Simulated scan of single mutants.
Amino acid sequence: MPERLVLQKLLNSALATAIVETGDDQVGGFVTDAVTVADLRTPQQLLAAYGVEGAPQFVDVVRFEQPRLASLRPPSDAPRPWPTFSNGFLRGDSLARVWTMSRARYPYGSEYWRLRSDGEQKVLSRYEGVARGWLNAKQWRPPSPMVGTLARWRGREFFADVVQESVQLTAINDEGLPGFQPVRPNVWSASVPLTDTEIFERVYTAELDGIPVRIVRTSGRTAELLLLTDDPDSARRVGAGLVESGVYEVVVDSARLANTRGVENQLAG
């Protein structure tokens, strides 16, 4: 299997806290080629490449392979109230490509790193897949079936982590299946050959007061939404909050959504 592109995601304090405190497993927005930013070893160097002034004691990043079925596109060149990358590269001399990545689940083996002002880099955590989540995180958050890879295997559907030529299947139910091992209460896992599965994702989109959104999670009558625009005026109109540069989210009553539709994207064999 060919090597996959390794990406780096710069975390703001809210994104870092979400991983450490709640085990958040979703990622998207601005990402860069991890190899071409390897020389940006201090917080000041990395932030400057993003157009941000400052020299904190540390910054946190996640390094991970491009998630299966996640798409990369050039950043928007529209004027925005945050640093933008209209030429598709970070600022300065790094010559690092930057993309906007569609919302996905972190792939198995993603690493959470801390870069310190003295140049030290240290791994703080590692994502061990759907069933186990982030090592040392204070909580495990159940995955959303609306974000990330799923698998069909022997007539059933499971959450799926593709690991080289195998797939870690995760089932969340009261009773396990033959061959599945318990990982935590009501969470079961098994590893099967990739060739025995069908890997896919389901993406649900809708409109909120005319603004295009992606549904990333539902709970009862509420829906967690990712705006499919980075326009600040559109975000203000629907009461969405800025979670990071270029990414707006909002939680609403599902009854407010219109033109809801779903699409299934298949992983090519």
Rank of each mutant, 00 (worst) to 15 (best):
M1N: 07
E3S: 13
E3G: 13
L7C: 12
L7Q: 11
K9Q: 05
K9E: 00
L10S: 09
L15G: 04
T17N: 14
A18Q: 03
A18S: 12
V20I: 14
D24N: 15
G28L: 01
G29Q: 06
G29P: 10
F30K: 06
F30R: 11
D33G: 09
V35R: 15
T36G: 09
T36M: 13
V37R: 06
A38Q: 14
A38P: 04
P43S: 05
Q44H: 07
Y50W: 13
G51A: 09
V52A: 04
G54H: 06
G54I: 05
Q57D: 03
V59Q: 00
D60C: 04
R63S: 07
R63W: 00
F64N: 06
Q66Y: 00
L69H: 02
R73T: 08
S76W: 10
D77S: 15
P79V: 04
P79Q: 06
R80P: 07
F85I: 05
F85W: 04
L90T: 00
S94E: 06
A96K: 00
R97A: 13
R97L: 14
T100D: 09
M101V: 07
R105Y: 00
Y108I: 05
Y112F: 15
Y112I: 04
W113V: 05
W113H: 12
L115R: 15
L115V: 11
L115G: 11
R116H: 12
S117H: 10
K122R: 14
Y127V: 08
V130Q: 08
A131C: 12
W134H: 10
L135K: 12
L135A: 12
K138T: 11
Q139I: 02
P142F: 00
S144N: 01
W153G: 03
R154H: 09
G155V: 13
F159T: 06
V163C: 05
Q164I: 06
V167Q: 07
Q168G: 01
L169T: 04
I172N: 02
I172C: 01
N173E: 15
D174P: 01
D174R: 13
Q181F: 08
P185Y: 06
A190M: 14
A190G: 12
A190T: 11
P193G: 11
E201S: 14
E201M: 10
V203S: 12
Y204H: 14
T205L: 03
A206M: 08
I211V: 15
P212T: 10
V213S: 05
V213W: 02
R214G: 09
R217M: 12
T218A: 11
D230Q: 12
G239V: 00
L242F: 00
S245M: 00
G246M: 02
V247F: 02
Y248R: 04
L257W: 04
L257N: 04
T260F: 02
V263F: 02
E264F: 01
